[in-house]
Structures are given as C-alpha cells and as structure tokens.
Amino acid sequence: MGKLKISRRAAALGLLTGATGLLSYRAWHVFENDSSVFIITDPDKAEPEGRLFNTFKALSQIVTFRSDLHEPTLETIYQVFHDEPWMAEHTLTSYEQLKPFINQETAPTSNPKLALGEGQKWFTEHLLTTWYLGIYYHDRTQPIRVAYEHALMFDAIKETQPIPLIDATGPRGWSSKPEAL
C-alpha cells in the first residue's frame, strides 16, 4: 500500500478553515514555523475492495493528526461508521476535499477552496470526536464505546497523567511530579 506525505502546517490549515477565525489564526500561529511531515495511507493505491477502508483510514489520520493509529480501534470505528448509510459518501467527499493538502510541504496562506463543505465539516468533526473520546455518539443509536485506553484524549495526556483504570502512579508516587518531567 502506498504512503503519502502531509505537512502538519497544511493539514492544520485545512481542518481549521471551518472553525472560527480566531481559532484558525491560533492554529496557524502555532504551526507557522512547523514544517514537519507525517505519512498517511494512500487509498488510491489500495485494491478496489479495500479503497473505502483505506480512504477512511487516511481521513482518520488527517483528522486526528496521527499516522500511527491503533489498528484494532480503527477497524472498530470503521465498522460502526460503516453501518451508517451516509458513511461512504462523506468519507470519499471529505477525503477529496482534503486531498489538495497532501504531498505539499507547505500550504498557501489562504485558499477559499480548501474549506470543507458543511456536511463534510460535520462528518470530520464526528470522526474526530469518536476517535478522541472513544465513544460513538449519534442520534440514531445509544452511545457506543469503541475504544478505552486507545481513545486519543488519553494519548494526549499519558506522559504526565495515568489513564484511569489502566495506569497508576504506584505507592506514594503521587506525591511528586510525573516521572516524565
């Protein structure tokens, strides 16, 4: 399967064009000097029967800003989303709209065409929320747990804070600063 490069700066701009101006500015400000690049899956290189899955994976990588997503969690989330009738169209369209950012080392400072459509903006936010909280929320169904320790909110904090019900400081280890510091 092929791999694509995406610059952190480019993806940050692309995903934030639907957010408020202030937030877009803040994101741009944070990453304006960041030219780091990470690798995502290239869905166009997949076999036809695997194209939707790989597009979903690539979209997840872009939305979550992570190339190394936990594969069993990806498969669980894909399955839950796949049960939705709108999943395939939103996945493919969102990916197409974000595609201009891929393989770019830098991004233009502004480009109205980069904005996601309203439906795709909702879809990518829905995807991000699912990955981040590890819970699938939708009016159609009761909330579904799709990940616990691999929920990305814990990935964000795990260097300095234990994942509840998974990690512990050990006896009296709670009295000092986290070891990572």
């Binding site: 957010a19 939305v63 991000l128 964000a156």
Partner: peptide, 10 residues
C-alpha cells in the same frame, strides 16, 4: 471549542 489536533492535543 472547535480546536483540532494537534492544537487540541496540546
């Protein structure tokens, strides 16, 4: 709030 990764993570 509308934050997205990586700013959301940070």
């Amino acid at each position: 709030t509308g934050l997205k990764p990586p700013e959301l993570d940070a």
